[in-house]
């Protein structure tokens, strides 16, 4: 990775973390940064871009934004949704199409990626936070377990309780009563991950599963989720190098491609 070789940038402003990635002329990752998303997105993006320059990324590179806050980055020449960017990033990293599951902070997406890296179809979780990273965040906080220890706890569990609710709010109250009954925390954590994975699995099946099963997004790093998801869908899981970064990486790849084309605006429904 050599930041001085960078030729284009992608920024993924997610609901939980913001990722910035630079690629060189061949589309290889040249520099990257990940931070928790702050309320002032514009300022944060500006600061992260300055950080990239300080690290040696050349100035004036074309930038493409994706993620929830994509329209709040004025420096970006255009914006695309995370769906296409994740597909693009993962396809480049793994070199093939298949079914990509991206469990993000607020949205879970199942994306059918063609062998050319294009999105053929996709499905997203419905309006509530069930089956998303937020479900884990809220329930982990209720159990007072740090998020990054959830996987280890779940994998160490001797037993597993069944959490019947995938609704974040109802799951919280289920946890309260399980704790009151003296249930071991690892068993609850494993039950929670199982509930999440069932929900995601149903979404994946409804999209029509085509192997390989690939994961991206922050939750993908959770080993227990990987293992349970593989069990749930009966397929082994393939991971890109930095699953969390795939949106920003895909965005940077698109930016690299667009560099030779004239700028074009994209308008959202609310701004139309």
């Amino acid at each position: 990775m050599n930041p001085r070789e960078a030729r284009a940038l992608g920024i993924d402003v997610g609901s939980t973390t913001t990722k910035l990635c630079a690629v060189d002329g061949q589309g290889r990752r040249a520099w990257q940064a990940i931070e928790p998303t702050e309320p002032r997105i514009q300022e944060q993006a500006r600061r992260m871009l300055a950080g990239a320059l300080a690290a040696g990324v050349p100035p004036g590179l074309s930038l493409l934004a994706t993620g929830y806050g994509r329209k709040l980055v004025p420096e970006a020449r255009t914006a695309l949704t995370e769906i296409g960017c994740h597909a693009r990033g993962v396809h480049r990293e793994l070199g093939r199409g298949g079914t990509l599951i991206d469990i993000g902070g607020q949205d879970t997406k199942v994306i059918a990626v063609g062998d050319d890296g294009k999105v053929q179809n996709f499905a997203m979780n419905d309006k509530c936070a069930a089956g998303t990273g937020r479900f884990l965040e809220v329930t982990a906080a209720r159990l007072r377990v740090p998020l990054d220890q959830m996987a280890a706890l779940a994998l160490s569990a001797q037993e597993e309780v069944s959490i019947s609710s995938t609704c974040t709010v109802f799951a919280e109250s289920e946890i309260v009563s399980l704790i009151a009954r003296g249930t071991e925390v690892p068993a609850i954590v494993r039950g929670l991950l199982r509930a999440l994975v069932r929900r995601v699995g149903a979404l994946a099946r409804a999209t029509g599963l085509r192997p390989p099963l690939m994961l991206s997004g922050g939750v993908a790093r959770n080993e227990a989720v990987q293992r349970l998801l593989a069990e749930e869908l009966g397929l082994s899981v393939t991971l890109p190098g930095e699953p969390q970064l795939m949106g920003a990486y895909g965005a940077a790849l698109f930016a690299l491609e667009l560099q030779s084309q004239p700028p074009s605006g994209q308008s959202g429904m609310s701004s139309a």
């Binding site: 949704t81 294009k118 959202g268 429904m269 609310s270």
Partner: peptide, 29 residues
């Protein structure tokens, strides 16, 4: 095909941001 969750007459069951982002991604496809 895209599933858009809303309600035909009650705007309280409509989330602008959710619909907009799904629709945008769908149109990209």
């Amino acid at each position: 095909a895209l599933l858009l969750e809303a309600d035909h007459n009650d705007p309280r069951s409509f989330s602008e941001e959710q619909v907009a982002s799904r629709l945008e991604a769908f149109l990209e496809v």
